[in-house]
Amino acid sequence: MSDDRKSSKRPRHPGYFNRSKDKSDGPAARHFGPRKAAEKNPDQLWIYGVHAVAAVLGNPRRTVLRLLATQNAVARLKEEGANVPAHEDVAPRDLDRLLGAEAVHQGVAVEVAPLEPLALDDLGEAKLIVVLDQVTDPHNVGAILRSAVAFGADALVVTGRHAPAETGVLAKAASGALELIHVVEVPNLARALDELGDLGFTRVGLDSEGDHVIEEAMGGERIALVLGAEGKGLRRLTREKCDVVARLDMPGAIKSLNVSNAAVLSLYLARRHLGAPAKG
């Protein structure tokens, strides 16, 4: 095992997509606890891991402020096809001190400005989007981002509050997908679902108690998959705004899945209904 690799133990410091200036609404005010020292500035963040950093370097929407890398990591970035800019040579222990010993940095970290979230008006001709109703775990959201990109989704819609921040933890879990899909931030999810309905989206909510099986729920030429928070699922008003609330029929003793696993299945069925995405 390379000395650039760290333990597979995952960090536990979620935050929020919104970058509100109201400190009372920031991560330190929540029970999740504070961010790591390297992520306390809302105007910049560290993204780490070979795949995540390679995706950053290939994203023209990103402003790269600083790149720290070991020689091994630079070689791996080049193997990934990344155009590696001027960087600072570091040892793995330097990144441990910066990011925390539990961060799986693989010998590389890049400091960037956060991506600007889009508005619903920016969706254009989008056909498939994922809407998150207070899904807060950054590992789940990262996995959902990765699946959304894999199945050709056009955007992820989150609320300004009750969503994980754009942090290194999220970017690492997404394994580069954060750079490949648009994130739309809305102040009120119920109103956003109304607007999506006006735009012609079939709003399909996922719930283990849904009235319809998900295979029969896909319809129309534009689909918005609505996924609820871990544990409590969709909120009442969110359910009411959906055109259909569907369930995944499972014959086993466990009747519900982790939200990121449910996202994979629903994205597959939605994409099968809509057909293959257009080639860019």
Rank of each mutant, 00 (worst) to 15 (best):
M1H: 13
D3G: 11
K6A: 10
S7T: 15
P11V: 15
R12H: 14
P14E: 15
P14R: 10
N18W: 11
N18L: 10
R19I: 12
D22P: 02
D22F: 12
P27F: 05
R30C: 13
R30T: 15
F32N: 12
P34H: 14
A37L: 09
A37E: 04
K40I: 11
N41H: 12
N41C: 11
P42S: 12
Q44S: 13
L45M: 03
I47E: 01
Y48M: 07
G49A: 14
V50C: 08
V56H: 09
L57N: 02
G58S: 07
N59A: 01
N59E: 04
L65A: 10
L68P: 00
A69D: 02
A69R: 05
Q71D: 14
Q71F: 14
N72Y: 09
A73I: 09
V74P: 06
A75F: 10
E79Q: 13
A86D: 15
D89E: 12
D89S: 13
A91K: 15
R93P: 05
D96R: 06
L98K: 10
G100R: 11
A101K: 14
E102M: 08
E102P: 03
H105I: 09
H105C: 07
Q106V: 07
Q106H: 10
V108L: 07
V108D: 00
V110C: 01
V112R: 06
P114F: 09
P114W: 07
L115W: 03
L123I: 12
E125G: 13
E125A: 14
K127R: 15
L128S: 03
L128N: 03
V131Y: 07
V131D: 12
L132S: 04
D133R: 04
D137V: 04
P138N: 12
V141Q: 00
V141F: 00
G142D: 03
I144A: 09
L145S: 09
A148Y: 04
G152I: 08
A155S: 09
V158D: 05
R161K: 13
R161S: 13
P164R: 11
A165L: 10
A165E: 11
G168C: 10
V169E: 15
L170N: 01
L170T: 01
K172S: 10
A173C: 02
A174I: 01
A174M: 00
L178T: 05
L180H: 10
I181A: 03
I181Q: 06
V183T: 07
V183A: 02
P187D: 15
P187H: 15
D194I: 10
E195S: 11
L196Y: 10
L196F: 12
G197W: 11
G200C: 01
V204W: 00
G205M: 06
G205W: 01
L206Q: 01
S208Y: 00
S208W: 00
E209T: 12
H212E: 07
E216I: 03
E216D: 11
G219L: 08
L225V: 01
V226C: 07
G228F: 03
E230F: 03
L234W: 02
R236F: 14
T238W: 08
V244I: 13
V244Y: 06
A246N: 08
R247L: 05
D249Q: 03
D249F: 02
P251W: 02
G252W: 00
A253N: 03
S260E: 00
A262P: 01
L265F: 08
L265W: 00
Y268H: 05
Y268Q: 08
A270L: 03
A270H: 01
H273C: 05
A276W: 08
A278T: 12
K279W: 07
